[in-house]
Design a protein around this nucleic acid. Structure first.
Length: 199
DNA sequence: CGACCGATTGACT
DNA sequence: GTCAATCGGTCGG
């Protein structure tokens, strides 16, 4: 698999609540040393501007300014002194919205991803979490603000046909309590983060 | 410039 | 199940 159909930036310039379920089942691909690490997105969360849980809430800062750029670019942030997480910015410029990619399923290059995860033994631990998948794919701040149809990290359509059922829930790990169900995941997929919210 | 804190993870009981 | 590590971003003084 190396003829990828990258998804144009324009597809992400609509509301985060539309983009989030759209991203499920799409491919997140990382090119390293001319080889491809291919994964399938299985869990995401939408963050809006008027949302107290969103990094874009309040005002534009040095960290969140990518969320206020045009949809179709990556917003990468560093958290808990250890981890990176990656989002897709949504809507047109100045909206301050995005979709966090919370979990992916390895499709190609799984053993290389496992090495990036310190040779962890259980397959699902390679990429069942926003910090874990960034480690597995070597995603860091160098992708901050870059377009989602770029060279070394991009999102593509999956050529194969996959039936799946989408579930929703409240979001995970928030320091503020929010009742809205803005988390979307592929029901039953083993790489979805384990949580009581799962249906 | 100092203090506080987090859209997490991994180690441990 | 619980809990602490860890440090850049953010904000207050």
């Amino acid at each position: 698999m190396n003829s990828f159909k990258k998804i144009p930036v324009k597809n992400f310039q609509r509301g985060a609540l539309e983009v989030a379920p759209f991203l499920l089942g799409k491919l997140l691909v990382r090119k390293i040393n001319n080889r491809f690490l291919v994964t399938r997105i299985v869990e995401v969360e939408a963050y809006l501007n008027d949302d107290p849980a969103s990094h874009s809430f309040g005002r534009v800062t040095e960290r969140n300014k990518a969320m206020y750029g045009a949809g179709g670019h990556f917003y990468v942030y560093f958290i808990y002194g250890n981890y990176f997480c990656v989002n897709v910015v949504t809507n047109v410029k100045d909206h301050g919205e995005g979709v966090l990619i919370r979990a992916v399923e390895p499709i190609e290059g799984m053993e290389e991803m496992r090495k990036n995860r310190n040779d962890i033994t259980k397959d699902q631990d390679i990429s069942n979490g926003p910090g874990k998948l960034c480690m597995a794919l070597h995603i860091d701040k160098k992708f901050y603000g870059l377009p989602v149809n770029g060279e070394d990290l991009f999102i593509a359509y999956d050529n194969r046909t996959h039936e799946f059922e989408t579930s929703i829930s409240k979001r995970i790990g928030l320091s503020v309590s929010v009742e809205t169900e803005h988390r979307y995941f592929i029901k039953g997929n083993p790489y979805v983060t384990k949580h009581k919210f799962n249906k």
